[in-house]
């Protein structure tokens, strides 16, 4: 299984699933849903936080949260 925190800047992927219990609802509300496309735009120094584009919506999240989101590379 691959997770969102393994993406390299500029890389695209698709969200497959996430850990329902731990993932904050707010992230789902911002569009982090299975089936949506995700792209890692930038990483801050020391690899955290991550600047993502998910389904056209731009946001930054921390590594620990990104590691809860399962992805599939094209």
């Amino acid at each position: 299984m691959q997770f969102l925190d393994s993406l390299e800047p500029g890389e695209h992927a698709t969200i497959v699933d996430f850990e329902t219990e731990k993932l904050p609802l707010k992230l789902i509300e911002m569009g982090c849903l299975p089936g949506n496309k995700v792209c890692l735009l930038h990483r801050a120094p020391f690899n955290c936080p991550l600047y993502l584009e998910i389904d056209g919506c731009h946001m930054a999240i921390r590594r620990e949260v990104a590691s809860l989101i399962e992805i599939e590379r094209p």
């Binding site: 731990k22 904050p24 707010k26 992230l27 911002m30 936080p49 600047y51 919506c57 731009h58 946001m59 930054a60 999240i61 921390r62 620990e64 949260v65």
Partner: peptide, 11 residues
């Protein structure tokens, strides 16, 4: 608790 952090990056 795990620290979660979501920030929108507006245009």
């Amino acid at each position: 608790t795990k620290s979660y952090f979501v920030v929108e990056m507006p245009n």
